[in-house]
Design a protein around this nucleic acid. Structure first.
Lengths: 213, 213
DNA sequence: TAGATTGTTAATCGATTAACAATC
DNA sequence: TAGATTGTTAATCGATTAACAATC
């Protein structure tokens, strides 16, 4: 992290990783900025610029070994170090993430989930225990938790974020739909606003239809 | 849609809408680019530039009426016209969306869901019937469906997208984690890559920790 | 009217693209 | 060596910010 890398570049890294994983699975061993650019709809220039933020993963005259490039990007994203996460709110969405989302692939280990519903407390889903939300603070005080996944009702979101933050949680993956812009210090908040995504799609959809008429 | 509005601007619109809805609820009737900028962490200039892509919603010397501004942005996003959507894949994630996500607020009506699981077929969730996936094409041929929500397993994603597209669905809200870059013509694809979001957060998290040591 | 704040034009900044020398 | 393709510097393009005249 010599210079500050622009957020645009960072946001492209997961996409590179995804594409390279796919290529590796397809048996592609070697690529070039031109080839990769064509596959991903980016210019060769941009790809080389992006990679060179991290020192470059290629070889002049040859290109990039898919495997090395993938490892390089994984390493930039820090995937060799696993962080811990807990789910706060084991409703439909929380359980959907517990059951379907591959935390490990993103460098996280899901170590617990919390909910207030007595029917859920004590059960286990996909290897993760659901604990009583009342025991959250005690849990946070006795375990190192790097990130909290907020999948609880909106109205409790702020409070949960502050609590987590107070007990040393440094990352908040926020699915509640509200913007958490409280004074969380240097805690990293990643807001997942599904409605933004659908609204944006709607804009283009309606625009496209308009042109038809 | 005189000139092409940049995607950056469009992506900010839902956030404006969200904030204005909040302000309205808090009883704020009037705002200015300066005030709104402070609340949202944007410059007053950018806010005025953004709004003026659509002709401006304000009044010199006064500012903006929260209600008018909100309506203006709603209208730009086309929220007065409701589009129809179906969920394809009623697993955890599909059901989480059916139960918790406010489609109406985004200008969509969820008119059906599809799944292959016989235990689910015929049931109803939050007012939406879950139908047999085998009947999907027939349904699409006899109903106007504007958008398909893909919440089925990765391996069926491409096929489902192509089917939907073939029957006139113009928008794909894709939760499957693969990139749908097939030849879908002018169909709008909105990929929701949750892993991108978590990977990005992980990058900053690990970076932040590094600085500590 | 005077003050405020927009709408809009001009200046700056950053990100993307193009070009090319280095080198495998 | 000759060909290819990177790493990197320079040029271009677009987005953000600043400035200011218009006007409520």
């Amino acid at each position: 992290m010599r210079y500050k890398i622009s957020a645009n570049v960072i946001k492209r890294l997961p996409r590179y990783l995804r594409r390279l994983t796919l290529m590796e699975r397809q048996g592609v061993e070697r690529t070039s900025s031109g080839d990769l650019g064509e596959r991903m709809g980016l210019t060769a220039s941009q790809i080389r610029q992006d990679f060179n933020c991290f020192g470059g993963f290629g070889q002049q005259g040859y290109g990039y070994r898919v495997c090395d490039l993938k490892n390089g990007i994984s390493s930039v994203l820090g995937l060799e170090r696993t962080l811990t996460a807990v789910v706060i709110g084991a409703g439909n969405l929380g359980r959907a993430l517990m059951a379907n989302f591959n935390f490990a692939e993103c460098g996280f280990e899901l170590i617990a989930a919390f909910d207030t519903d007595p029917r859920l407390v004590g059960t286990e889903l996909h290897g993760t225990k659901i604990l009583d939300a009342a025991a959250l603070e005690e849990y946070l005080s006795s375990h190192r938790v790097d990130a909290a996944v907020l999948t609880l009702p909106k109205r409790h979101a702020r409070e949960a974020a502050l609590t987590a933050c107070r007990w040393g949680v440094r990352g908040i993956w926020n699915f509640t739909g509200i913007d958490i812009d409280a004074d969380l210090g240097d805690t990293v908040v990643e807001n997942v606003h599904l409605s933004d995504s659908l609204l944006t799609m709607g804009y283009y959809l309606r625009g496209a239809n308009k042109e038809d008429t």
